[in-house]
Structure formats: C-alpha cells, structure tokens
C-alpha cells in the first residue's frame, strides 16, 4: 500500500539523495581501490623479487643485494629517533604542564609550522649547514639530524596530548604527598602516558622511514655497509633504491627497486598498524 500522496517525498528530493549516496559510495570505493591496487602492485612485483641474497649481499652498482640499504635505513632512523625522542617528549612535557603562557603558545605555533615545512626544505637545510657548512659531507649524522627535525613536532604533539589527557587528580595527589615536580613527571606522568607517547613515536618513525627527499641531500648513498663513521661517509637507504634504480634501463636494477619498495612499504604499514593496535588495546 502506498502512503497518501502528501506523505511521499518528492521525486527531485529523492533523486538528489540518491545522487549524493552514489557519489559518496563511488568516492570511497575509488580511494579504497587505489590503495588496494597500490599495495597489490607492490606485493605482486616485490614478492617475486625477494630473495635471501638481498639480506646477505650489498649493492654492487645496479645489482647484488640490499643489505647496505636495509641496515642504512634502520641506522639512520634509529639515530634520528635517539635524538628526537628526548627533545620531543620534553617539549611535550613543557607544553602540557606549563604551556598556557605566551611562550607555550608560541612554541606550539612554531611546532605546527614545523610540521608544514616541506621535507625537501629540511633536507636542503641539512645540506647547506651540515654537509657543506660543517664539512661533514654526505653522512649518517647529517641524515639523522635532518630526520630528527622532521620527527620532532609529531612526537612533541602526541606527548603533549597524552599528558594533557591525564586527570589533574594525579598531579594533585602527587603534590599532596610532597612529590617534587621532577619525580611527578618521571615516576607518575610519563609512565601513565607511555602508550600514547609510544604510538606517536611509532607514527613519526613510520614517516621518517618512508622519507626520501631529505636524505638525498644529507645521507647521500653508499654501496657498502655502514662502517661506524658518523661523518664523512655516505649511507645507503631503501627509498633511494626505489627512486634511483627504477629509472635505470636494466632488469636487475628494477628487481632491486621492487624489492626495496616491498620491504619499505610493508615495514611502514606494520609499524603504522602496530601503533594503532597499541592504542586500540588500551581503550
């Protein structure tokens, strides 16, 4: 039985609704398709290119393995993390606990601005200051410091948010028991906010691992395993292999690029996923 005519929604309104739904569904489906196609493509090209020798051999020209690049990527981001976490977390502590004055406001604003500075600009800064100015040449330290600057605002922001979310009763109780501020931060606030801070740090790590542009100017490239020198010596990394080797006309170079894309993409995705799961489990 059809409802009385006056209760029916006019056709033009129904059409517009249907069009909106259709556009919404199509947009989402299109984006999901692009993501799945991209991941599928990297998987289908990368898996056949994977080989044990990738992990045991260094790059020789445009062939060989990726041992130097894999370790290089890890060492570069590892040192960057080592530099960025203390600075970022302490900035977060400052902003959360004392950040309501004008210094805090300016710091927060500058931190937001730093997120917006293109990574290639940071890379060029690293090049003129560290590679040329300080005479470090293409090196691990120049690359790691540049990546650390890139990660800083993300870590500071998540630490601040995590600490602000803690109830002020925690602070009052600690002060009530005669706790000095340093002890409050180290023994109470940071341990309680550990998981969200860790999540933010992991997200920043994923971003740094996937970066190329800032490293082109600072880390350079090397066909050899990292020798333990912090300056004067270039370091290889995976994203360089993808960019540079795919443009070569040789199949062996392409295989290395596919393998590097496979390794870096799934490393980044796994880090991203574990960060999200960490946060979900806590809820």
């Amino acid at each position: 039985m059809t409802p009385p005519r006056s209760f029916q929604i006019r056709r033009s309104r129904r059409m517009l609704d249907a069009a909106t739904w259709a556009a919404a569904t199509l947009s989402f489906a299109g984006l999901a398709f692009v993501l799945l196609h991209l991941l599928g493509y990297v998987l289908s090209k990368g898996l056949p290119a994977m080989h044990w020798s990738l992990f045991t051999q260094d790059t020789q020209g445009i062939a060989g393995g990726l041992r130097n690049a894999i370790t290089g990527s890890l060492v570069l981001t590892g040192f960057a993390l080592l530099l960025a976490v203390p600075v970022g977390v302490s900035a977060g502590v400052y902003l959360a606990e004392h950040g309501d004055g004008w210094i805090g406001k300016i710091t927060r604003f500058l931190s937001d601005v730093l997120v917006g500075v293109p990574s290639v600009v940071l890379g060029y800064f690293g090049y003129v200051v560290m590679v040329i100015g300080l005479g470090w040449k293409f090196s691990l330290l120049a690359g790691s410091i540049t990546l650390a600057i890139l990660m800083l605002p993300y870590i500071a922001r998540t630490s601040e948010m995590a600490l602000r979310a803690l109830p002020s009763a925690l602070r009052e109780a600690a002060y009530g028991l005669g706790c000095p501020e340093s002890r409050l931060v180290w023994r109470i606030l940071l341990p309680s906010a550990l998981i969200p801070i860790l999540t933010g740090t992991l997200m920043a790590l994923a971003i740094a691992l996937g970066e190329t542009a800032p490293l082109l100017f600072t880390a350079g490239w090397s066909n050899y395993l990292w020798t333990g020198h912090f300056t004067q010596e270039g370091v290889g990394y995976l994203t360089y292999v993808i960019w540079s080797f795919i443009g070569e006309p040789y199949p062996s170079a392409h295989q290395l690029a596919y393998a590097a894309a496979f390794i870096i993409t799934f490393m980044v995705l796994i880090i991203n996923l574990s960060a999200r799961l960490l946060l979900l489990r806590r809820r």
Partner: peptide
Amino acid sequence: LGSFLIELLAAVPSVVFGLWGYLV
C-alpha cells in the same frame, strides 16, 4: 575499517606513490 583504509593512503611513502604512478 573503512577509515583505516583511507588513512593508510597517507602512510604510504611518497616514493612508493611515485613508483606506482610511474609504472601504473
């Protein structure tokens, strides 16, 4: 899950987007 799929697009490294754009 749907939001996760879209947000993963932001996590894919820029150079991998470049590779996909270049080859596909």
